[in-house]
Design a protein around this nucleic acid. Structure first.
Lengths: 178, 178, 178, 178
DNA sequence: CATGAATGAGGCTTCATTCAT
DNA sequence: TATGAATGAAGCCTCATTCAT
């Protein structure tokens, strides 16, 4: 009885998340999202009454949750914060390789462009907070500073990796943090 | 002989540079640029035959030159690389305060979005190279790594500052680099 | 046995009557009607199988019945036709004040716009006939002409009152009829 | 060198005036207007930057000017106000016959429906004022009341004529005014 | 009888660009 | 070199209605 395929709402959200990351908020049309999902026009506005901005919010939330899962997966099994950060960088490098079309860290294009920028900032802060929690757990003496430094560097490295079309800057990230 | 006011071409370029930074490439219309300059429609295509992409290239070049000037101004009078980097961060913090509407470091929106992304990467590399040259001049043992680290951190901090609407992350940047 | 609150069908009809008068037939969406009644989408098509046009017919009938009641209430206790007409004008002025958002005399927007205009004309004629009956009863020598004149003037005055956002033209109506 | 055909702007305005009178503001789509003029989509927004509402304003102004011309043509050659009013009614009856698709007096649909109702009221007042001026010129003792009565009755008769699909009420108008 | 998801045609408007003057 | 009218594809969104539950 369980649906084999995701709900209409989730399909739209996933397609939007991908497209916004590839082409940015203004660079993605709702027609693009619909084409990718083969859904009719009206469906979108049934599930997202506020339209494109609404869809972007849901896509950002989805992407943010993925980020949080990655943070957990990277630091949970680590023995110290540095090891966890190295694992985090590697995970992002692989993500970058797998999604060659992604630009910037997820959410960044929405942070830069969308009409709902104010709603994006807390998501980014949530990643820093989750990382700080892990830093505390792993006994880091300055968890907040460490977490901020990780994300500042990660965002900068992702940008550089995107510019160069090469994940090397992401892999070099742990070295930059020493 | 010097024009009291900037040429038509420069006025268009400056307006475009500002708007692309505020709203992104797709988020800025050529009509926006024309409205900001009070110039008629045809002027744009006279000065920029390839239209919007052409304008974006010129705007990016202009922004990039500003970046290079800032690098020079920050490191030239410095006694060591660290001092220069601190001056650089302060200059960016002031820039951020003066241009509250800017999003991301200049050029980043064009890097993420525009149809001429490939042309943006070399500009970013140029800033790193200029910084590496200064590092060499100031006797830094690993100029390339140092320069890369400066820009990675600067981009990350600018993103964070934009999200928080607060230049604090930019001012905290030198501390993150220790 | 009497329902404490109006039936679903009546709630829809009343909401539609109000909205059509405020915004016209094409200016009112079925979504507007549903929003005003907090009823779900399917309800409308259950009670009005032919959809919006069906709803408009019911709304027009409802509004027309109100008109007929007003005619009766105005002329029934009157001692002569002129006195009844004065009472009628006063009733309309009060109606206008109470429903500031109404435009035109009820039914007029449907008369002008809807896809069922042909069904509206008899309603208007019904008001004239009812008025003529009262004129006859009150001994007026030319009941049809008198009734026509009353309604022609009433419609014109309502239009003027709406344009001026002031019930004065309705109150001035008896004077115009002398 | 004189243009044989009206300007693009005027063609759009005339088509819009006709369509708004036939089908109302919301019942007329900008596509309808463009189809009638065989003009491309962009032209409309070049000449009417505020779009449909802008077009409606221009159409109303055009229709209003026609009304004023008719008033002048009816009363100017008249020997007294009553004679002028009779000529006016006859002109409207002919107009009604010629434009069988018109609903209500021109401007009324825009008065009832459009988003610019506040701008319509002064036009209607302008017709009354012009008529009052003629009444004064022709020696009527109460020009304002007379003019108001003419227009109230004209609007009411036009509405009735439209409902009945018969110009008779317009022709009967002078009789109602005695 | 009630509910809300699905549907796709059609709504208004903005877009980047071309062209005639 | 400067101007603004012309162009039509594409943008986002609302619409009335149907249908499965």
């Amino acid at each position: 009885m369980a649906d084999a395929q995701p709900s209409t709402r989730l399909r739209l959200t996933m397609a939007a998340a991908q497209l916004f990351q590839e082409k940015g908020y203004h660079g993605t049309s709702v027609a693009d999202v619909l084409a990718m999902t083969s859904l009719p026009k009206g469906s979108l506005y049934h599930h997202f009454p506020d339209g494109k901005a609404d869809l972007a919010r849901a896509a950002a939330k989805l992407a943010s949750d993925v980020m949080l899962d990655i943070v957990t997966a990277a630091y949970e099994p680590a023995e110290d914060f540095t090891q966890g950060t190295t694992r985090l960088a590697e995970k992002f490098a692989r993500l970058f390789e797998r999604h060659a079309h992604w630009r910037a860290c997820p959410v960044q294009t929405l942070l830069l462009e969308g009409p709902m920028e104010a709603e994006m900032a807390p998501l980014l802060q949530g990643w820093i907070d989750a990382t700080a929690t892990q830093a505390t757990r792993l006994g880091h003496p300055e968890p907040d500073t460490a977490a901020t430094r990780v994300w500042v560097t990660l965002i900068g490295c992702w940008t550089l990796a995107d510019a160069q079309k090469d994940p090397a800057p992401l892999r070099a990230m742990p070295g930059l943090l020493l």
